[in-house]
Amino acid sequence: MRVSSDFRELARRALSGKWGSAVLTTLVASILGADIAMAGGPSVSRVTNYVSNTMGNGGSDHSYSTQLSSLSVTTLTYIFGAVMAITGLIIMIGLVQYVIGSFVSLGLIQYNLDLIDGRDAELSQIFSKASMFGKAFWLRLRMSIFTFLWGLLFIIPGIIKAYSYSMSGFILTENPEMTAEEAMEVSMKMMKGNKWRLFCLEFSFIGWNILGVLSLGIGMLWVTPYQNAAVTAFYDEISREPLN
């Protein structure tokens, strides 16, 4: 049974001589809202929380309130309107990314599957699953809803379910005739006894992720394709195992 270091080695072999293509493909897919786990995408909630926290903190700061009181009502109206317009634009972009990123995520998965299997992997593949738009969007939305609901029972159940559903995108990509529900069910069966292995694999990248952040995010251009390829190698192995 392979361990984390084995999957990382498989990823490095697959990426050898193809780093440029992988970095570009992953970058474009990410900008479009794609995530190989179909759990990421635009952080609309973080945007709205930031705005609400900013406005809330402003009311509690006496010196800030004093400065605001010295501004004219018209100026405040313009500022408030600008903030709301920017916030609305960010949320709209986020929603568009979430929708488009659904089928682009499947395309990114196909790119990485071809990469791991040694087949030709090209940037255009991230758009290869556009015909599965409806099914891909429903899968992403369904995964998000179920993970959120499980998370309401405390954080740990939500995390466990996120790992249970984590292979759904891979399964749907390779089996387009399946429904979103079926892909999630197969993923749960496939991940029985494998959730801890995937957690260890992802945790093994913590050092790389820290370096990526410390490099002002530039390093993540290489870390993300590396991690995606390793997770794909992980899926490639467990998908060959008989389901319980």
Rank of each mutant, 00 (worst) to 15 (best):
A162Y: 09
A180C: 02
Y163T: 04
S168Y: 10
I155S: 02
G169M: 05
Y163H: 12
S166T: 11
A183D: 08
I156A: 14
I171V: 13
E174D: 15
L172Y: 04
Y165M: 05
Y165S: 05
E177P: 04
Y165N: 14
A180G: 04
F154Q: 06
A183C: 14
S164A: 10
Y163Q: 12
L172H: 09
L152K: 08
P157A: 05
E174L: 09
E181M: 14
I156M: 05
M167I: 07
A180E: 11
N175C: 03
G169S: 11
S166V: 00
L153M: 09
I171L: 14
N175I: 04
M167V: 09
I159S: 02
E174M: 08
N175K: 12
L152T: 11
F154E: 02
P176G: 06
I171H: 11
S164L: 00
N175R: 15
Y163A: 09
I159N: 02
I160W: 05
T173N: 09
M167W: 01
M167L: 01
F170Q: 14
T173I: 00
S164N: 10
A162H: 09
T173C: 12
G169K: 04
A183K: 13
T179A: 04
P157R: 07
N175P: 01
E177D: 14
M178E: 07
K161F: 01
I160P: 00
M178I: 10
I171T: 05
